[in-house]
Design a protein around this nucleic acid. Sequence first.
DNA 1: ATCCATAATACTGTATACAGTATATTTAAT
DNA 2: ATTAAATATACTGTATACAGTATTATGGAT
Lengths: 211, 211
Amino acid sequence: MIHRSPLRDEVYRQILDGIQRGDSAPGTRLRDTALASSLGVSRTPVREALLRLARDGVLDADMGRGFRVPPLDSREVGDTGQILGALEALALESSPELPPELLDRLAELDRKLEHTRGDATRCADLEDEWHQVLLERCPNRQLLDLIATHRQISRRYLLAYLRDSTPIALSTLPHQKIGESLRKGDRPTAVRLLLQHWRRGIEELQAWTAR
Amino acid sequence: MIHRSPLRDEVYRQILDGIQRGDSAPGTRLRDTALASSLGVSRTPVREALLRLARDGVLDADMGRGFRVPPLDSREVGDTGQILGALEALALESSPELPPELLDRLAELDRKLEHTRGDATRCADLEDEWHQVLLERCPNRQLLDLIATHRQISRRYLLAYLRDSTPIALSTLPHQKIGESLRKGDRPTAVRLLLQHWRRGIEELQAWTAR
DNA sequence: ATCCATAATACTGTATACAGTATATTTAAT
DNA sequence: ATTAAATATACTGTATACAGTATTATGGAT
């Protein structure tokens, strides 16, 4: 099964990566014409990608004034985190019981995460994957898509934070406690711990952002 | 303060209204070229609107095959409703105490709703406005935007349902009970009732969709 | 030199053009 | 008559062109 995929999707990822990598400072204008020639495509798919990024909250867009990288705003982390916490809690609640194989994968990711220091991107990737594995059994695909989209915003903050911090690995203790609860089949506790995990993480990012 | 607004936004609303009005049957292809000439604009803003509608879950899009009106799917109502319930609950939880003036507006909307029979669009508008007033004090603007977007999906189902049903007005009892709880300052109960209201509504729409 | 006005530039939003692929239509074969 | 192949049409995805507005640069007045 071969599937041609629209240019705009590839362009979307490229631009998104650039933003999360932090290679344009907040306030920078992203000019479609510049991006287009830099990526070797026309303005059309670039604008489609930019429009979507703006809708997704990753970029600011003002009529007649194009697109720009938004500032890191502590209120935005809070808002996004609140949404993500609620959505992930919902996803976990409505998942069927997680098979042991999945729980093992979670533990394995935690192990990798513990041994990862300094490499911000890898840290964020592993953290992302942990959450994705945790929720992948949720039957509500729309919900999972929504979560994935919103995670792009929080990911930008996480990466900026990790790059800025002295190379401290993310604590995996909350992960482990969630895994334990799930092993015991105690879903409500797992959900509560997940929410708590989110709240703490957001607070940390907020504190750093407002520094 | 004058604000020029992009054509794509106006086109977005036009197309969305058409879909919700149900004037193209599920499965119908929406051709940008046809819409463009029908609306008297070029393909560009039309495609931008279609792309967004697809992202919002209002349309199906397949590479090389354009856009089409998706079928009414009982699983989709369920998924959307679950998300909306959680999001609205969150929004209500994180709202400051509602001023009496707002509670009066809610009651007023309920009164109007009770006296509205037969006119599906007006019913849906009032129902939408009720939820919007309920949540408008929530400080998380991102959350409110997300809710508004997702409501467009559920609105399509609601309108289809209302058009099909013998002209029965929507029950306003749940609304009233929520209003009461809020008047007493009992937020947790209000949130619980709101969730319950959603769950019942979804069940009804699901049952009708799967008929 | 600083500030404002004016002109030049550049970029955004929209329209149109083009190429390749899916869909529809016609024609031929069983 | 029904199905299959082949051709024609039409539509999508992408590129380019155009018009109008924001931004920057330039020059003159204070």
